[in-house]
Each structure stands twice: as structure tokens, then as C-alpha cells.
Simulated scan of single mutants.
Amino acid sequence: MHRALRGTAWVLTVVVLLVVAFLVYAHIVMPGTRSAALQVWRDDRVAVRDAGDAVVMTPTGTADGKGIVFVPGAKVDPYAYMATFRQVVAAGTTVVITKPTLNLAFFDTRPLSTFEAHAPRVTTWAVGGHSLGGVRACQLAREAGGLLLLGSYCADDLSDTDLDVLSVSGSRDGLSTPAKVAAARGKLPADVRTVEVVGANHADFGAYGDQPGDGTATIPRAQARSEIAAAIEDWVRTLG
């Protein structure tokens, strides 16, 4: 009996330690670059508020009635994507950047409507994501009118949909490599719009510094961010 109790206690101890270790791991995120975030906060064309479960970016000028619910990459601070969408929001589009459960999109089971509720004046919604966040966005895409993939690709088959899809990739991406993006192309609708930013790597889709396993970018981050934003702006005009 005592031996069985000791064995049970040992197993429970191991389980608790594993859970604690995972929670610590999940809560260590790649933080946003402070200088990039400050540029957004100081931009009077963009309003930013923390809604608790999301970061909501809205234009202070004329809004176009369109919005994007955006899911961050694994263990990346949601605020790191403010710089990515600064110009998009300034041009009139609302962006809601989610705060995934445990900072990992796969653990977030909330529907798209949870985040759309933060911007009730938006009439046309798209969903998007970076890296693992893009994989989650693909799972939510049937609830939206458009899908935005930044350095990402779908595991779910959406080839039978009429979604407006934009896939932006980086030629120097060491994680969502050009080969991986191309291999998953068949899971998207036939008329998907693709843009490859030559010289950009995986971390160029957010302002959070370098990322382990990534390729080396051959263009300045400011240039990559500008090209990414321009591609998104052009795509948003076709939504709705």
C-alpha cells in the first residue's frame, strides 16, 4: 500500500512539474520592439486600446468599414504587430490583434465573433495571422470574408471556398520557407493573391527582433514592413 502511494505521489509530482514548466514556457514571449511601438502610439492617425483579450487599432480619420482580426505567431507579444498594421489602419481599416490563450494560437478556441465585437461599426471582416497564428486563422476563415496569411500557410483545406485570400511571404523566411508555402498552395482557393517580399525573413512580419531558426534578411526591416503594408492595403480595397 505504501509503495503504491509513493508511486502515485511520484507520478503526480512529475505531472505538476511538467504543467508548471509548460506554463512558464508559454508565458515567456518575444516582446515587441519598443521604438516601433512608440512610433505607432505617437501616430495621431491611429488609436490603440487594450480590450483585455485583444489590442484594437482603429483609424482616427475616415474608416472604410473593413476590419481584420489578426492572430499573432506563437509566443509573440501582440503589440509587436502594431508596427505591421500602422499604415493599414491609418488608411482606414480597423485591426484587432488577438491575445491567444497561453500565447499559443492552437489553445485559443474562441470564435471570430468574440473579437469582432470590439469594433461593431465594421461591416466587412477578414481574419489573418502570422506563422502559427496564420494556421489558426485558416481554421476561422470560413467565418469571414477574407483570409490574410503573413509568413504562414494553411493546414486546413480551403480550396473549395470563394474566400479573398492574400498570402505574403518572405524569400529569406527560415521557418515558413518558400518551399513550405508553395507546397501548401493547393489548400487555398484558385485565385489566391500571392506576394513574395524579396529579402524579407520570418521576423520581418512583426517588430520583435530576431527569431531562432530564421533566415537572414537582406533588406532593412523598415523596407520589408513598408512592402508588407502596401500589399495588405491593396488587398483590403478588394474586400466586400
Rank of each mutant, 00 (worst) to 15 (best):
D214R: 02
R142T: 11
P78W: 03
R34D: 07
S113A: 14
G7T: 00
A26Q: 01
P59T: 08
R45M: 04
Q87E: 15
V127C: 13
L23M: 05
P100G: 11
A80T: 02
A155K: 15
V16G: 11
V29I: 07
Y79M: 12
R142S: 11
L148K: 00
V96A: 09
Q223N: 05
L239K: 09
L112W: 03
T8K: 07
H27Y: 15
R237N: 13
M57K: 10
A144Y: 03
L188G: 08
G215A: 08
R193Y: 00
P59A: 05
P72N: 03
A141L: 12
R3V: 12
S159K: 10
Y208N: 06
A182L: 06
H27W: 09
T109I: 09
G92D: 11
S176P: 07
F22L: 14
L112P: 03
A47I: 09
F70M: 08
L166H: 01
A200R: 00
A155S: 12
L150F: 04
G92E: 09
V56Y: 10
G213S: 08
L158I: 07
N201P: 00
L175H: 13
R136H: 10
A47L: 09
T13H: 06
G65F: 01
A119Y: 05
P100M: 15
P189Y: 04
D173S: 08
E143A: 15
R110Q: 12
Q223A: 08
R225F: 04
R49M: 05
D53L: 10
R121K: 15
R3P: 01
V88C: 08
A47M: 05
A190R: 15
Q139P: 02
A4F: 08
V89Y: 11
A54G: 12
T58H: 07
K180M: 05
D210G: 05
L18I: 02
D214T: 02
K75P: 06
H27I: 09
S176D: 03
S171N: 10
F115Y: 15
V56W: 02
R237M: 15
V135S: 03
P220A: 12
R237Q: 13
G128L: 00
G213P: 04
I28C: 11
T58I: 14
T84L: 07
D162Q: 08
I97Y: 04
V11F: 01
L166V: 00
S113K: 05
G129N: 06
A207N: 02
V168K: 04
Q39C: 06
Q39M: 13
A184Y: 06
G199F: 02
T161H: 14
A184I: 07
I219A: 11
A217D: 07
